[in-house]
């Protein structure tokens, strides 16, 4: 019973996670907007406590049959750990080449580099903003490829994770005027949840 409370979040906490993510997401988007000289359309971040095997269903920004490419990047700090996933719909790549003034062929050879770069920027900025508000310093690992041109079930394999529950923050970024969709997903480990909740409760106190 006590464990159930420890590893759960109530509505007030969810709202707080959402607002903190909202601020962090805005900082990440600003960086991307300035770098690519575009306007990033910001969604309302989704915060959910889910079972890892529900992860594929939880992804709303990409569809299960679409061809996708993704990278992941671990992070850790002050007793909190997790993994960030950045997933691009493959239909985005032709517009990415338009945006970067690449030739179509060039994009394919630079796809991986682009994925890694964007992941580093978005994840780094998000974690910085998120951590700043919670007074946590995060360190991020190197990004690694989850898969290229595969479907979601090939990309996300629940047995990859050693924990069963996860606090998932999902942000679906879109770029104004371009057909570019990407999903940034922050997955916090089960053990991180009580630590995070403590920090959130501190913010919620008067």
């Amino acid at each position: 019973m006590q464990d159930e409370v420890k590893f759960s979040i109530d509505e007030e906490q969810r709202d707080c996670y959402q607002e903190i993510s909202n601020v962090a997401m805005g900082q990440a988007a600003d960086l991307l907007a300035r770098l690519l000289k575009v306007k990033v359309i910001l969604p309302i971040p989704q915060v959910n406590l889910i079972e890892v095997n529900e992860l594929r269903m939880a992804l709303t920004g990409v569809h299960k049959d679409d061809s996708v490419s993704g990278v992941c990047q671990g992070f850790i700090g002050d007793g909190i750990a997790g993994e960030a996933l950045l997933i691009f719909n493959d239909t985005s790549f032709s517009d990415i080449s338009r945006l970067l003034n690449y030739q179509e062929a060039e994009v394919h050879s630079h796809e991986l580099e682009f994925l890694m770069d964007i992941a580093n920027i978005l994840v780094g900025a998000f974690l910085h903003g998120f951590g700043e508000q919670l007074d946590v310093g995060f360190m991020q690992g190197h990004p690694s490829v989850l898969g290229q041109h595969v479907n979601l079930s090939e990309l996300i394999q629940p047995n990859h994770y050693r924990w069963s529950k996860t606090l998932a923050v999902e942000i679906s970024y879109q770029i104004d005027g371009y057909n570019i969709n990407c999903d940034l997903l922050l997955l916090f480990t089960e053990d991180s949840i009580p630590v995070l909740n403590n920090k959130i409760n501190y913010l919620l106190e008067d």
């Binding site: 601020v23 805005g26 900082q27 988007a29 600003d30 300035r34 306007k39 990033v40 910001l42």
Partner: peptide
Amino acid sequence: VSGDIQPE
């Protein structure tokens, strides 16, 4: 008062 701090 916003988290959307893009120049646009």
